[in-house]
């Protein structure tokens, strides 16, 4: 009996470790708050994610874009000092990916934006997240159920080209 409960306990601990490893909300080199930029300033998503409607990848802003405002705004804050250092040293900011798909999946932001999907359908209420966390599982079932509900193509080659 003890052994049985022990095994279940170990399995549970295993799940906990797996969940920890999954890293839904990794730390970022700069603690960029979407709350301020999205909710308070009402910047549209593609103001910074400049390629979202023209490319597969949404992309992040070049450091110059951040600096165009932050040359004069909130320059005394620690996170902005970090940003300025990146800019002065001409180093790119290595953001940690929150959403990534395996290589055998073809995914295009452009197509989804053009189909009229709101960013929040996959990325959640980003404007309320101080630190970004992944809200969808990004598993195949997750993609397919949405494709089914919206009548989007479900042919294998749609995503596995």
């Amino acid at each position: 009996m003890i052994a049985y409960f022990g095994v279940v306990f170990l399995a549970m601990a295993g799940l906990a470790v797996a969940w920890q490893q999954a890293g839904l909300s990794p730390d970022q080199p700069i603690a960029f708050p979407h709350t301020i930029h999205v909710s308070k300033l009402s910047l549209p998503c593609n103001f910074c994610h400049i390629y979202v409607d023209i490319s597969r990848h949404a992309g992040g802003p070049p450091v110059e874009k951040c600096m165009s405002c932050h040359k004069s705004i909130a320059t005394e804050r620690e996170e902005i000092r970090k940003l300025t250092r990146y800019y002065e040293e001409k180093r790119p900011i290595e953001w940690n990916r929150v959403y990534s798909l395996p290589d055998h999946v073809y995914f295009s932001h452009k197509r989804h934006v053009k189909a009229g999907l709101d960013c929040s359908e996959c990325h959640g209420m980003v404007g309320a997240m101080k630190k970004i966390r992944r809200v969808g599982s990004l598993k195949m079932g997750w993609c397919v159920s949405c494709h089914r509900a919206r009548g989007a193509p479900r042919d294998c080659a749609t995503c596995h080209q």
Partner: peptide, 8 residues
């Protein structure tokens, strides 16, 4: 996130 959104 929804709760945070409501607060904001």
């Amino acid at each position: 996130d929804r709760i945070a959104f409501l607060t904001m």
